[in-house]
Amino acid sequence: MQSGITASQELLDTFKAFTEDTSKRGFLVTVEKESLVPKESFPASSSFDDDLKGLESLLTTDVAVYIILRKDPPPAPLISIAYVPDAANVRQKMLIASTRNTLIKQLGGEKFGDSIFTTEKHELTAEGFKKHEAHTKLENPLTEEERVLKEVRDAEYQAQAGTTNRKAHVSSGVGFPISADAVDALNQLKEGEVSLVQLFIDVEQETIHLASASSTDVSGLADAISKEEPRYSVFRYTHEHNGSEESPAVFLYTCPTASKVKVRMIYATSRGHVAQTIEKEFGVKLAKTLEADDASEIDAKHLNDLLHPQKEESKTFSRPKRPGRR
């Protein structure tokens, strides 16, 4: 399991009854006391589009839930939906996002034909479903594991981009407390006593801890940063540029591709808050933020290109002289 949360017997019984009773269009599922439990249901009529109005009345803009939905009569596959509005509680958003794969596996992945993740109520209207179906036809079919991994990558990309066409559910960030040893190390970095501070998240305790604090130059950076575990690293990059020495601080987020889905989701959702805390609480101005699967991708050239991008020279053309002038 991705998070230790499992389906309750009540949910398993409700789901079994739902698959055998076509009088219901769908029902909600939430997380309570480390278990997935069933909540309100809504009836089925002859029109799927009309029944979605019943679903809309059950949803709010500040509570994240799963939705089990039937579009067509059996044996047509069901639809699983993770609805995670931006205004929902941060912990609730994380739990719903990270246990989605567990829910589908325990109910029976073979029973589901589509899986949707959304932050917006309007995407669960008749018009929203039509757009989703049109978009799905343009994509290659993915397994459920691939869908979840794609969403993690999307979340990481959105966190890196900062702004998107619509606000992502991870945009507010997850604010975990920082341990005392990490605080001391960040203060040391601010005072120039160390050049590299690495932080990690204790997922179970929901706290940020110090992985290591050291002094290294860019040539030793790849060897210093863990290749097995995700890390937030703050690196003081001392180098020469245009004849003068500079020492900007760079925020590095490294997350190996083999990391568990839940861990990747937590790191992606927490990154913005950690960087913001380092700047505001410790007074360490972060010149740039860089993301990589592996620290070996980060070298002097990479950092220089990031900090000092070369400007393209604009070509100028001489205006032709007027006839008769010399």
Rank of each mutant, 00 (worst) to 15 (best):
R153K: 15
E120H: 14
L142S: 08
E133N: 07
T119E: 09
L149A: 15
T119Y: 07
L124R: 01
E139Y: 01
T143E: 03
F129H: 00
E144G: 09
K130S: 12
N140T: 14
E144F: 15
T136F: 07
E139W: 00
K121Q: 13
T118K: 09
T118E: 02
V152W: 01
L138G: 03
E123V: 10
F129W: 04
E123F: 05
E123R: 12
T136C: 08
K137G: 05
L138F: 04
K137D: 06
E144I: 14
E123D: 15
E151M: 12
E133A: 09
E151K: 02
T119Q: 10
K150D: 05
E145C: 06
K137V: 06
F129K: 01
H132K: 06
N140W: 03
P141F: 04
A134V: 06
T118G: 00
E120S: 15
R147D: 12
A126P: 05
E146V: 08
R147N: 13
R147Y: 15
L149H: 13
P141M: 03
V152R: 00
T118A: 01
K121C: 09
R147C: 14
T143L: 02
E123C: 10
E139S: 01
A134I: 05
T136P: 04
L142I: 10
K137M: 05
V152P: 00
E123W: 09
L124D: 03
T143N: 02
E120A: 15
H122V: 14
T143D: 02
E144W: 01
E127G: 09
R153H: 12
E151N: 13
T136W: 08
E123L: 05
K131I: 07
T125I: 10
H122L: 10
K130Y: 02
R147E: 13
E144C: 11
E144H: 14
H132T: 08
K131Y: 08
E139F: 02
V152N: 00
E123P: 04
T119G: 04
L142V: 13
L142H: 11
E144Q: 13
E133G: 07
E145L: 11
E139I: 09
T143V: 04
K130F: 06
K150F: 07
G128T: 05
R153Y: 07
E133P: 00
E139A: 01
L149E: 14
T118V: 02
T119K: 07
L142C: 08
L149M: 14
T118R: 06
H122D: 13
K137L: 07
T143R: 01
H122M: 03
K150Q: 08
K121V: 03
F129S: 02
E133T: 06
K131S: 14
K150P: 01
K130R: 12
F129P: 00
E144D: 14
E127Y: 10
T119V: 11
R147M: 14
K131V: 10
L149T: 14
E145S: 10
R153S: 13
N140D: 09
